[in-house]
């Protein structure tokens, strides 16, 4: 795999993973670039028989952990900070999408608001499991390897994420 192929193939998923981990568009862009450039630099040593996706996602998660550590250090140095991790906005800026009609648009917006509301109550790690499973169709074993957690943790995080999503979507679907 060439560096260009790697970037073309994984940039969208790495960005979605980074966005759900950081909850911030600017941080997600930085994290995406950092993770993919690290992957490109590590490409010569990458084993061909391993799955590149799992490897790239693991690099992304590790880069995110480093970012968190760096931010924690910075907060410690400043003694106080407005960057409360719980206040991180998990709703990224709106992106233009085709709208078939006002009613359909309103429904889609409502659904989207509910999804974002559920995501805001999840931990970054739970959101990461959801992204890798639902958006990239990764197996539990691959997710466990990417996030460096046991298989049981993947299962329980996914159940919590789905339960919360189902609750938020529930009343109007019932």
């Amino acid at each position: 795999m060439t560096p260009e192929e790697l970037v073309n193939r994984y940039s969208a998923m790495v960005y979605n993973l980074a966005l759900r981990l950081t909850g911030d568009r600017a941080d997600a862009e930085d994290l995406t670039q950092e993770a993919l450039l690290k992957a490109v630099n590590g490409l010569p040593g990458f084993r061909g028989d391993a799955d590149p996706g799992t490897w790239v996602y693991r690099i992304t998660v590790n880069a995110w952990k480093n970012l968190l550590r760096a931010k924690a250090k910075w907060r410690f140095l400043r003694f106080f900070s407005a960057d409360d991790p719980k206040a991180v906005d998990s709703e990224p800026a709106d992106c233009p999408e085709a709208a078939p009609g006002p009613e359909a648009l309103a429904q889609a917006q409502d659904l989207r608001r509910r999804v974002e509301s559920a995501l805001a109550e999840l931990t970054p790690e739970e959101r990461a499991v959801l992204v890798l499973r639902e958006l990239d169709g990764r197996s539990y074993a691959e997710i466990a390897e990417s996030l460096d957690v046991p298989l049981g943790t993947v299962k329980s995080r996914l159940v919590r994420a789905r339960t919360l999503l189902a609750q938020k979507l529930g009343p109007e679907d019932a």
Partner: peptide
């Protein structure tokens, strides 16, 4: 069924496109 709907909703509304220019900058 609730789990299925939750997953479908996230697949439809949880994905975000790559910001314009980011891919070009990386390449």
């Amino acid at each position: 069924e609730r789990f299925e709907k939750a997953g479908a909703a996230f697949r439809e509304h949880g994905r975000r496109p790559l910001p314009a220019g980011l891919l070009g900058r990386m390449l």
